[in-house]
Write a protein that binds this DNA or RNA. Structure first.
Lengths: 240, 240
DNA sequence: GGGAAGAAGGACGCGGCGTCACCTTCCGCC
DNA sequence: GGCGGAAGGTGACGCCGCGTCCTTCTTCCC
């Protein structure tokens, strides 16, 4: 019973589901058509590989929940471990620390956002259209994120913004390069791109947070505000 | 020797300095003019009170150093305690946690900055002059802070910005109210003040950080950039 | 089917955490 | 001046989270 209760608290941990999957597929009605003991056609990576991926994901999911519920500071590695049902040693096979999990989580977000940013960058030709598209894309993304991983958690600690991670730096660079491209296309005089990019991202972050606190969440309104501010300001910037 | 070495590591802890001060003032050449055993003229608060103030300050100073050297995340309450030379129990008479010390530190900074902000607010009549004055004041303040408490600490972890503290909120409000006042004076159409304040503070913070990374540190340049961006953008903002 | 490689497991020692019973110091009062 | 009570400093203690490391089990490959 106690073991059962313990199991019940777990997330779906691969080790268990895998076993279950296997017993189904091996005894299932279709097992005769996948006849070969180890067919070359089977593109799925080995079980080792799958468990690793799944454990990584389980840890990330658990961490998301824990950070969401307790806040970043209050959360402990043990909280995350407990939530996954894995052993503590196993956790450390994947991540070195709470910080590393958090960074992985931030990376994950950034990695999912980058294609959207890229799409805006390719779609837009001039600075205004890019800025508008990117800003709205970010605010929509933010609202969606918040919605998806904060379900039914009304009052919780705010999660800090990640300061630096590879993917985050990549987003910064991507914005910067897109700015350079569209500004050149507009024949705009050269400005301090680092400062401009920083300022825009700062506005996006801060306004994004404020936007999420308002009801109803108005992504278009926030984007409009940010875009007008920046578009109005850029022509006045000191020329290099 | 070991006790002596231990003492040497301490900051100036009141308990000791007090004793020292007292022995000097009681045996010093002027002691005869402060004749009364317990003169009513002595405005200094009782020793209890002084020790408390000094201990608070010692903890704050130690914390500043420790956060500076180790970074906020890596720093522990024990590190701070060790640095002060106080007993662990004493620390908890003043602050409940590392977070609380950090907030007190942030509060301290905000408290010292507010008069400067207030001065700019009173000096300026229109939005441009206030914004320029406040932005430059902030960047100068930031540069000075950094200089004063990061002496000879070339490579250290970045200290996170405090998210929320009473004094910080007060600064936000003060900026907001000053904006309201000068914008009204300029007969500017009403805009979303919360968003505008957030955006300006976000720009100041982010640009401030970037500014500190550059050599030489150019507060005027950064302020000019920020001011132009915002001044150019404000007229384009959506009207309420 | 057997052995090597690799992952999961979890007990362990370490150190930071916050508390509490004790003791010193200070202050007000006679 | 000295006494009593209170404020507040002290540090040992129990607790718990941390990261490690050796053991055990699973998977892979021959």
């Amino acid at each position: 019973m106690s073991a059962g209760a313990c199991r019940a608290e777990r997330n779906e941990v691969t080790f268990l589901t895998e076993r279950h999957d296997r017993s189904i597929s091996e005894s299932g009605p279709m097992s005769n058509i996948a006849y070969f003991p180890k067919p070359h056609i089977d593109q799925r990576p080995g079980k080792r590989e799958r468990t690793k991926t799944a454990n990584r994901q389980a840890i990330l999911d658990a961490a998301r929940e824990v950070f969401g519920e307790l806040g970043y500071d209050a959360a402990t590695v043990r909280d995350i471990i407990r939530r996954t049902g894995l052993a503590s040693g196993t956790f450390y096979n994947y991540y070195k620390s709470k910080e590393e999990v958090f960074e992985a989580l931030a990376d994950d977000g950034a990695r999912r956002f980058r294609p959207l940013l890229r799409a805006e960058s390719e779609k837009a030709v001039d600075f205004p259209s890019f800025l508008r598209g990117a800003m709205l894309a970010y605010f929509d993304f933010l609202a969606k994120e918040q919605e998806s991983w904060r379900i039914d958690r009304p009052s919780s600690e705010p999660i800090p913004h990640a300061r630096s991670s590879p993917e985050l730096a990549a987003v910064f660079d991507e914005v910067r390069e897109a700015f350079a491209r569209v500004l050149a296309h507009d024949n705009a005089p050269p400005v301090d791109l680092d400062y401009l990019t920083s300022a825009c991202i700062a506005i996006a972050r801060e306004l994004g947070d404020k936007m999420l606190e308002r009801r109803p969440v108005d992504t278009a309104g926030a984007a409009d505000f940010a875009v007008r501010l920046i578009l109005g300001g850029v022509p006045a910037l000191p020329k290099l």
